[in-house]
Simulated scan of single mutants.
Amino acid sequence: KLELSLFAINILPKLALHEENEMKEFILSAEKKEYVSKVIRAENSSIWLGKVKKMELFRYAINVLPKLQLHEENVMDEFCLSADRIEYVSEAILAENNNIWLGKVNKLDLKLFAINILPKLKLHEENVMEEFSLSAEKEEYASEAIRAKNNSILLGRAKKLELKLFTINILPKLVLHEENEMEEFCLNAEKKEYVSEIIRAENSSICFGSVKKVTLFRYAINILPKLHEKNVMEELCLSVDRIEHVSEVIRAE
């Protein structure tokens, strides 16, 4: 376990870990930028960590992420980022998309502004997640992910996919494994702006494979024309209490 806080985080570039190093936990928390100033100046992918089971980065420590290098066969139980201010991710979002290697990750937990890091992450093509869930009360929490190209964020396989509020607009950006089998896919959009990006997507452009149960509430129902014909659903549940919730579906050809 490696846990650094305050100015100790700046020692990170000086550490030389074994090439076959394995860590149960890697935790960094920095409330001030100066706590990570030395690390931020390091070259990308220059700090070798090896294999890490659980990684947690908080506040300014998230900006260290592009500097880290994980083993090509890394398997992570949990990857957690939390940022309640945009400056906590200001350096990390400058990284190239699909460039921060994580390997296989069972649980991907991104909160608040940290959701903007999603396009930067690179997961193993055979990655399997029990659940992938995102929620953003403010559009700025997910703006970088929403601006990403469609079908550019590779997730692998996800058994449960749940997007809430503004993160629903990330859906066209996601790519699931072509043989993905999902237990549940759930979207609930109380406001039209939560699905505005999806409405602009091409029809039949969103593919999530085989799903046992799809549940769509309110404005989320307007994604129906966007779903690819290859999607296989055992159960489809729709809930609407206003006509505008289905306006896009009605207009679809």
Rank of each mutant, 00 (worst) to 15 (best):
Y141E: 04
E72D: 08
K159C: 10
E179T: 12
F132R: 13
A142W: 04
P66E: 06
I250W: 01
K226M: 08
P172E: 11
V246A: 10
S196C: 12
L118W: 13
V39G: 10
E179K: 15
A158R: 09
A252H: 06
L216M: 06
K230V: 09
E3L: 05
E72K: 02
I117N: 07
A95E: 06
Y88T: 09
A114S: 15
E139S: 12
I170N: 00
S196D: 10
R147N: 12
N231C: 14
E20L: 04
E248S: 08
L17R: 06
S45N: 06
E248Q: 13
K191M: 01
Y60M: 01
E229H: 03
K191R: 04
I11M: 11
G156C: 12
E202Y: 00
F208G: 01
S45F: 00
K212G: 00
K111P: 15
E137D: 15
K122M: 15
E197W: 07
V52E: 01
M129D: 12
L28V: 14
R218L: 08
S29M: 13
Y88A: 08
W101F: 14
E178G: 07
W48I: 08
H124C: 12
A252S: 14
L121D: 08
L123T: 08
R242W: 02
P225F: 07
N44D: 11
V246Q: 05
L216D: 05
A16T: 15
P172H: 08
F166R: 02
E248T: 11
Q69N: 14
I153T: 13
P66L: 11
L94Q: 14
C207G: 10
L121C: 11
E34S: 04
S196R: 06
L165I: 03
K159G: 09
I198F: 03
I40Q: 07
I47Q: 00
V240P: 14
F26W: 14
K104D: 07
S239E: 11
